[in-house]
Amino acid sequence: MTATASPVTRPPVQARSGGFLSRALSFLFTQEVILFLVLVVLIVLVGSANPRYVAERNFINILNGNAYIAVAAIGMSMVIISRNIDISIGSLIGVLGTLSGTIAINGYPIWASWLVPIVAGALVGAVIGFLVAYLRIPAIVVTLGLLSILKGGLITITGGAWITDLPSDYFLAQMKSPAFSFLGLNVPEIPSPILLMIILTILAAIWMRYSTTGRAIYAVGGNAEAARLSGISEKRIIMTVFIINGITAGIAAVLWATQLSIIQSTVPAGLELQIITSAVVGGVSILGGIGTTVGAMLAAILLSAINSALVFINISPYWFRAVVGVLILVTVLADRLRRQRNRASERG
């Protein structure tokens, strides 16, 4: 019975069959809905213990805090769905953020300091994609090597000097969209990281669901052989996925660099694990083929909300990481149970 764990036997999400009821049930139990419910429960519980947790300001800070992680998780989700992985992404964000700050303090136009990192990210993504797709080196090996190269290279070049004295119009992440009216509703001003996170996530989700290339990513990750037979160029898809990942890493890097008045010009420790965690907790299967960017965004928000909640309900910070570990496990277990249910209902 344990054979169900094998990737071969797992049915792709799209292939779900059954009556209306089971379809409704399986919608209710999608990872996105579960994550959303967990988020709501967390907010209600912590909010009732300390009403300041649900104050507008904290709410926005929670959304804002992990927005750059959510943006990076978009590309990471695609990479993982295509059955690859990128563990160099934390280092890449550190390097691109430093690049952005360096451009800004050297008198170049501000738009250049926002755009160049994104282009550079796409280039790095193309290199990774080339090594993985055409030279057939496993992605984990390429990015493990790249992680060292980027991390060491950054220190060698910058000597670890912080970037200060950034121009005052550089701070993209601190900007807010102007308040605007939408369908008669008064939408308050939203910080740009939140806006970018939501727009990019929705765009990516639509693209992945409805475009030919987007669907091909699932096909490559789900069953590479079948994808090849149906005329999908696996190499081209892998290149595309890594380039997109580089672009979202670039955007994340700009958000990361522009939120504070200092850029540390080092690689943020453990960032890659946070991004990968967001993607997998969001329902992206590490075995490829399934998951959505919406789930990854919700997971990034959930992790940020947990971070904040632990301070609010006075959990000793000593136990913080243990709690995070338990929560990842619980989410994943819920995911497994859901899938078993689905499978059971398909058979029944």
């Binding site: 300041r52 300001r57 904290n58 800070n61 504070l260 200092i262 420790a269």
Partner: peptide, 25 residues
């Protein structure tokens, strides 16, 4: 009131300080 950890990471330090501000008002 309390002591929080933030590694040697400025973004984490920022988030932790913001959370403290929001928590205690």
């Amino acid at each position: 009131l309390e002591t929080v950890e933030a590694q040697e990471d400025n973004v984490l330090s920022f988030n932790q300080a913001t959370t403290l501000i929001n928590k205690y008002g």
